[in-house]
Write a protein that binds this DNA or RNA. Structure first.
Length: 829
RNA sequence: GUCGGAGUGGUGGAAUUGGCAGACACGCUAGCUUGAGGGGCUAGUGCUCGAAAGGGCGUGGGGGUUCAAGUCCCCCCUCCGACACCA
């Protein structure tokens, strides 16, 4: 191809200009009364940790491609961006430098915004939501107060992570391998008074509604497991006197089981060490042992628990007390064991060693009876048998399978007045208070006389003070800031103190996408109209690390807001479709700032251009998979863009050495290939097969290169249609080079390529008249024959049998011929 | 341990419905661009036997269903991820 002095492709010369024009023209801004059909495309708003790293870039490239793709379809795309700007790293930096987190955070947001713009990502920047914005804080607090009024926010005691060094509660994420992330102190469990959101009210709905979401199956599975619904029976074990007779004065010990059918095999009962009735069962002679055990469990740090990974040592102690197995009428001993948790079920279990491995291990360790109640399958050589089989040693259940036995037992428990069928969830209420500074203050006031009193709406927002001093200890400055702390009770007017807990940052991320739909509203967090127009999010994009917490909390918020009629009543799910992209690894490990193995996009953009980086991201792997930075093919992608440039830039021989007049057969093939490309790329984009789309561009480019080098030369209209169409199809992926080439090809006055309509393939041009038919003998390919696409089965068979190639492998008459015209004929010899 | 996902050339990957395995790219090899080049163009490139023509083998391993299996079924191995004593 000619190398005359055409305008060279220099990304650095063209990219900043286009980025500025997209920003200045407001072409990706959308108003709430926009008449177009809408799409809401959202990438999870990032934590602003400074300039973007390559993982961000991957995420935002996918989102940007979709925004541009839908825009070219004539849709009004809501493409907002925001920043999850509260949280620990900024606070830690503040403690370290003795500086307020706000300027630090604002600077990081500026850096991140600049990197997003430098890769050509387009947003409606007017709608930016920042968690630490006073306006956003106000509405987060306002929503908390509505939840509080509705009983969805409450205060209760809960075991929490306590760092003795920092004298503060830690979020689970702040506990790393049992140590405080900041001070490396061993974290303890403490029971403290805490704020909760009552997400468990929605456990069943959160589970049920998963069915209708267009989300990755694994995310749905993870959420189902996290919610952890189990059906079973809750019933009472009568307390036994020392002589084994029932003590009718004491309330029965409540237990929960999913296997009520195994009741006859219950040979002991186990309570959690923290169970509040432990003392009642403990006899004088066992008191010392029980106390010692409880102390040891309490002292059991996260570290000790981790160290038992793999083989679990069963630790427990006998209380001296006993209960009656209501099935057999016999007294059985009551133990404490650390494998029974207060936080699940009733905090006490009936132990059936024959049918539960943990109970089996415990029974072996403490030399307790084991009674099988389900006949193990033939040849079973394990210990506890958890499978199905006929009941044994179970009187009136004998012979029944597990399902029938469960049902019969359930009826019996109800009849006897012992208990009932129940459903338990693993899901816990959401502990939302954090003893940290850099978060939205909980809008509550503590009054000696009135208790906790909500801050009235007209006093919102409660903002963080500016004049704070960060002590190296890590305690929240709110706890010793007199100006913030002291206030008057909104109810009685007496002296009172503000709540110093701030909200978990997951509260901020639970509704930011709603605010983005109505970011300018100063009457309410959002209007029903705005949500009805834009919500649910049509495509949400983010990392799978948020599969459980963020996405569960956001779903809970949506349902609660709808029930409180803050949001439209029928809007019960926030994200219609979810895509979880894989992460970018480096040196086989996760890329993270703390490891120092991040790749800054700035250097890549400077060296290869934003388009080459975007193309490399799309090309390297299917978006859902993890990718190693080492596998990126930046050079190859950049080379390809140069190739496209040379093909499309005016001034080459291609613009002069072209044929006019009627197209010939070869030209028609190119025209057809162009229509096939439209069909292919549209399909690849729709199904997130961006790597295949890039392959499609490359194949087509190769085809066109061959075409222009034929002796006849290219046909003017055919060539220009092919190139223009490919540029349009590539525009969402590589927006700068396509915009620039379009401008050169169509002039400065023509609308830019991103305002062009998405091409539609002509069905006539997609019709294939001739195909290659495969002729197989015994499943092996022996010949290929060009045949008309509409060939009949009989003709295909005749052609295949006549094939000399195939005949060479046939000794006699074929046993069987399978015909799949026009693609394949298989002759079975 | 439980639940998910994955294993295809030297490398990243493709194969949407059971129907040509390896598209596209990286890398490598050769030729051309009368020279150099981290440039451009063209051709070749799964393994193996063979001088060639041509043959055989081939999608982690083993078995099965089928005219036909990367794709479906059973067993096993390895890697990755999530939850991890949830009664």
């Amino acid at each position: 191809m000619q190398d005359s002095d055409i305008l060279p492709y220099r990304p650095a010369d063209i990219e900043p200009g286009w980025q500025k024009s997209w920003l200045d023209s407001g072409m990706y801004e959308i108003d709430n009364d926009d008449p177009r059909e809408t799409r809401y495309v959202l990438s999870m708003y990032p934590y602003p940790s400074g300039p973007a790293h390559i993982g961000h870039v991957r995420n935002y490239t996918f989102g940007d491609l979709l925004v541009r793709y839908h825009t070219m379809h004539g849709r009004g795309v809501l493409s907002p961006i925001g920043f999850d700007s509260f949280g620990l790293p900024a606070e830690n930096a503040a403690i370290k430098h003795g500086e307020h987190p706000r300027p630090f955070t604002d600077a990081r947001i500026e850096e991140l915004s600049a990197s997003l713009r430098s890769i050509g990502a387009v947003y409606d920047w007017r709608r930016v939501v920042k968690s630490h914005d006073p306006d956003y804080i106000k509405w987060s607090q306002w929503i908390f107060l509505r939840f509080y009024e509705a009983g969805l926010a409450y205060r209760a005691y809960a075991p929490v992570n306590w760092c003795p060094g920092c004298k503060t509660v830690l979020a689970n994420e702040q506990v790393v391998d049992g140590l405080c992330e900041r001070s490396d102190d061993v974290v303890e469990k403490r029971n403290l008074d805490q704020w909760f959101y009552k997400i468990t009210d929605y456990a069943q709905e959160l589970l049920d509604d998963l069915d209708d979401l267009d989300w990755p199956a694994r995310v749905k599975t993870m959420q189902r497991n996290w919610i952890g619904r189990s059906e079973g029976a809750e019933f009472g074990l009568p307390v036994a006197n020392p002589d084994g007779t029932p003590n009718t004065d004491a309330a029965p010990l409540q237990v929960f089981t999913t296997r009520p059918d195994t009741g006859f095999g219950m040979t002991f009962a186990v309570m959690a060490p923290e169970h509040d009735r432990v003392d009642e069962f403990t006899t004088a002679e066992q008191q010392a042992d029980v106390d010692a055990f409880r102390v040891s469990v309490k002292a059991l740090s996260e570290i000790d628990r981790m160290s038992t990974e793999g083989e679990i040592t069963k630790r427990g102690v006998f209380t001296g007390g006993s209960v009656i197995n209501p099935f057999t009428g016999k007294a059985i001993p009551v133990f404490l064991a650390d494998y029974v948790l207060t936080t699940y079920g009733t905090g006490a279990i009936m132990a059936v060693p024959g049918q539960d491995q943990r109970d089996w291990d415990f029974a072996k360790a403490y030399d307790l009876d084991i009674v099988r109640t389900v006949e193990p399958t033939e040849g079973f050589d394990g210990e506890a048998f958890t499978g199905d089989g006929p009941a044994i040693n179970s009187e009136w259940l004998n012979g029944l399978g597990v399902t029938e036995a469960k049902a019969k037992t359930m009826d019996w428990l109800v009849e006897q007045g012992l208990g009932e069928a129940t459903i338990k969830f693993r899901l816990r209420d959401w502990l939302l208070g954090r003893q940290r500074f850099w978060g939205a203050p909980l809008p509550m006031v503590k009054c000696e006389a009135c208790g906790f009193v909500p801050v009235p709406d007209d006093q919102l927002p409660i903002l963080l003070p500016d004049d704070v001093e960060f002590r190296p200890s890590g305690e929240s400055p709110l706890t010793y800031h007199e100006g913030f702390l002291n206030t008057t009770c909104p109810k009685c007017g007496g002296p009172a103190q503000r709540e110093t807990d701030t909200m978990d940052t997951f509260v901020d991320s639970s509704w930011y996408f709603l605010r983005m739909a109505d970011a300018f509203n100063d009457e309410a967090p959002f209007s029903h109209e705005a949500l009805e127009k834009f919500l649910p999010v049509d495509q949400y994009i983010g990392g799978v690390e948020h599969a459980i917490l963020h996405l569960m909390y956001a779903r809970f918020f949506m349902k609660a807001l709808a029930d409180l009629e803050i949001a439209p009543k029928t809007l019960r799910e926030p994200m219609r479709r979810l895509f979880t992209q894989g992460m970018v690894r480096m040196g086989g490990g996760k890329m993270s700032k703390s490891k120092g193995n991040t790749v800054a996009p700035e250097a890549i953009v400077a060296a290869h251009g934003a388009d080459a980086l975007r193309l490399a991201i799309l090309q390297v792997k299917p978006p859902a998979e993890d990718v190693d930075w080492e596998d990126f093919q930046l050079d190859g992608c950049e080379r390809f863009l140069h190739r496209v440039w040379r093909l499309a830039i005016p001034g080459t021989d291609l613009f002069t050495d072209v044929r006019s007049g009627a197209p010939d057969a070869a030209d028609n093939d190119i025209a057809k290939a162009t229509h096939v490309l439209i069909e292919r790329i549209t399909n690849e984009y729709e199904r997130w097969a961006y790597n295949n789309a890039v392959a499609g561009f490359m194949e087509f480019t190769n085809t066109v290169y061959k075409y222009v080098q034929t002796p006849e030369g290219p046909h003017a209209e055919t060539l220009h249609f092919a190139v223009d169409t490919m540029l349009k199809l590539m525009a969402p992926a590589v927006p700068h080079i396509t915009a620039e080439l379009w401008r050169h090809r169509h002039g400065d006055d023509a609308p830019q390529i991103h305002l062009e309509r998405w091409p539609i393939a002509d069905p006539e041009m997609l019709i294939v008249s001739e195909v290659t038919m495969i002729v197989q003998v015994n499943g092996k390919v022996r010949d290929r024959i060009e045949v008309p696409a509409e060939i009949s089965d009989a003709d295909a068979e005749a052609l295949a049998l006549a094939s000399a190639e195939a005949q060479g492998y046939l000794t006699g008459a074929p046993k069987k011929v399978i015909v799949r015209a026009p693609k394949l004929v298989n002759i079975v010899a």
